[in-house]
Design a protein around this nucleic acid. Structure first.
Length: 612
DNA sequence: CCCCCCCC
């Protein structure tokens, strides 16, 4: 027979733990597991656990560890080390209080398939004995790092329960439950939790009525949960609850979490009720409760995330836009936003949009680190971006090791590295556009629609204007605005309301393009002008700084070349006169195979003959 | 009981 000592099992540990004591990193054997439906869409796993001397059947795994046990996870008879646990007293549906062991972290020492039998001859830990020792454990205060519950060495814990809780009852010293043990089926609980996030107060009005609400997020060693307060409860608790403070909370209503709007690791969320009691916790151990838990992903990984998913991201602010104010198209409401570019060690950058008050108050000077929990992934023009929601937890330069790490990276090298911009509009002009001739564009009166009309034309560049083809632009990433030369070595960007000693060259060309039916004046922006000139804006800028006469010959290289130009035509009113303005949004070399196919179609259409 | 989260 296999002996507990051969496996270094912690004989007697269960007796200590189940009496409210502390036994660090005990080694135990799993004798069985059973999935039990705790409501919601997730099951809980109850396991039969042995320390070699005793067994208990009321050990549970946190739902995060579910995958670790069972047919494809940790096998029955495995010897495990319990790296982190807590115990909790639950009301066992009228049969009196029972203590359960909740395993938070574990590692496998020997796989069950190698052992394939029960080690030693453990006997069930006597429940009555345990209950008796619960009372006597009061003089033996367990370490709070292993027990959020039972720490209060207060024998009043074991007094009979009062049937209803008076809201003025002092919750301090009351036995507490881990957040991860909360279910809608058991409403006698007190949690001790840190408020990790709090939304602003929101009012709503719809067919079902109107009101106001705010929500907050609660965190303890076992997990996290979202809680929402409506109407009167907003007045009662909004100011009282402060982010990062710790509270005793009881009597909220639990319900399955709506995962579309809640990214917390909990299958439930809860609502403040008339019976809810919240009291600040001043215990010294409260400081040991964890701070906000993040599941950071690096910026490059956002590329693979679905639009509308929620992510935790940490990044250094590379640049910030001005504050934009505009009307929402659907609601007509006035919106304020600020666009921030974030970078991280994956050498990838992404645009982050801050809204409303967050946008107004954000100060991007000195490249602060932004830490986001629950930011929304968006998409625009083929690139990904991030946007904050009212529920997003935003922290600027928090005292966090990841924050110091990324700060160090940015200051030592990150600031000077080339980065890939995940928000780049790769899709600009990548959509299908109809072939047109300039005569068709004129005959069809293109340009009348709100968003403009798009077409592509096979055109030859006839004349590029050299005046104002290059300018000194604001060095801020998204700005690109032409700056005013202060004539003192500084340049001023009116849009950003800032002066810079540096600038970046940008190209903006006006040119006449012709096809066999006519010609059209168009404008073309930086990236596309670089393509037709075969030189970057920086190179062109450098060359004309040497010799401004060179501009004519640089531009001349592009003349009389044929391209496929994707254009947008839109009517604009200038000096009370409506005229069509055309912008070439993409220029590509001619794909003759494709163009010929179009011509064949066109000939068939004109002649009624079929060449197929 | 919200759950809209906006724009280019």
């Amino acid at each position: 027979m296999r002996c507990p000592k051969d496996y270094n099992m912690s004989e007697g540990a269960l007796q200590v733990i189940m009496s409210g004591g502390d036994y660090p990193n005990p080694i135990m054997q799993i004798l069985g597991s059973k999935r039990i439906n705790a409501g919601g869409d997730k099951e809980k796993i109850r396991i039969l656990l042995s320390d070699g001397k005793h067994t208990i059947s009321f050990a549970m795994l946190t739902t995060q560890l579910n995958d670790k046990v069972g047919p494809n996870g940790v096998q029955t008879f495995s010897v495990i080390k319990i790296d982190k646990y807590i115990t909790s007293i639950i009301n066992n549906s009228g049969k009196g209080d029972a203590r359960v062991l909740l395993i938070l972290e574990m590692s496998v020492i020997v796989d069950g398939t190698e052992i394939a039998e029960k080690i030693g001859t453990p006997v069930p830990l006597n429940e009555a004995e345990t209950a008796k020792q619960n009372g006597s454990a009061s003089s033996n205060k367990p370490s709070s790092s292993h027990n959020t519950n039972g720490t209060s060495s207060n024998s009043s814990l074991f007094k009979p329960k009062v049937s209803s809780m008076d809201t003025s009852e002092n919750l301090a010293g009351h036995m507490t439950h881990p957040i991860s043990s909360l279910t809608p089926y058991q409403n006698k609980w007190v949690i001790r939790a840190r408020v990790s996030n709090k939304t602003t107060i929101k009012t709503w009005s719809n067919s079902r009525g109107e009101g106001k609400l705010f929500s907050f997020e609660l965190l303890d060693e076992s997990g996290e949960i979202r809680c929402t307060a409506f109407r009167d409860h907003v007045d009662k608790f909004y100011d009282y609850l402060q982010v990062d403070k710790v509270y005793y909370i009881t009597k909220c209503q639990l319900k399955p979490a709506n995962k579309q709007f809640n990214s917390l690791k909990n299958e439930y969320e809860m609502t403040v009720t008339n019976d809810t009691n919240i009291q600040e916790c001043h215990d010294a151990e409260a400081s040991e409760l964890p701070q906000t838990q993040y599941n950071f992903i690096t910026i490059d990984k956002i590329a693979e995330k679905d639009v509308n998913s929620l992510v935790d991201v940490i990044g250094v602010v590379k640049s910030v836009s001005e504050l934009f104010t505009f009307q929402a198209k659907t609601t007509g409401r006035e919106l304020k936003k600020k666009e921030v570019t974030l970078v991280d060690q994956s050498k990838t950058s992404i645009a982050l949009t801050l809204w409303g008050e967050d946008a107004e108050t954000f100060d991007g000077t000195n490249n602060p680190v932004i830490v986001l929990k629950g930011a929304k992934v968006g998409e625009f023009g083929g690139g990904k971006n991030l946007s904050t929601l009212v529920s997003t937890n935003i922290k600027i330069n928090p005292e966090l090791k990841e924050c110091y790490r990324i700060r160090g990276w940015y200051d030592s090298e990150g600031a000077n590295l080339e980065t890939t911009n995940l928000s780049a509009r790769s899709g600009s002009g990548n959509f299908a556009t109809n072939w047109m001739t300039f005569k068709e564009v004129k005959d069809k009166n293109l340009g009348g629609s709100e968003r403009g009309d798009y077409y592509q034309v096979l055109g030859t560049i006839l004349l590029i204007k050299t005046d104002n083809i290059i300018y000194k632009a604001c060095p801020t990433e998204e700005c690109n605005k032409k700056m005013v030369d202060m004539q003192n070595g500084m340049y001023r960007c009116e849009k950003c309301n800032r002066e810079f000693p540096n600038f970046k060259y940008r190209l903006l060309a006006h040119m006449n393009v012709g096809d066999h039916t006519g010609n059209q004046w168009i404008s073309m922006f930086n990236s596309e002008v670089e393509k037709i000139l075969g030189a970057t804006a920086e190179e062109v800028g450098q060359q004309i700084e040497q010799d401004s006469e060179q501009l004519a010959s640089i531009v001349d290289r592009a003349h009389f070349k044929e391209y496929v130009l994707k254009c947008r035509a839109k009517f604009e009113t200038y000096n009370d006169e409506a005229r069509v303005k055309t912008v070439c949004i993409k220029v590509d070399p001619v794909n003759y195979e494709e163009y010929n196919a179009y011509l064949v179609d066109k000939i068939q259409e004109l002649t009624g003959l079929n060449f197929g």
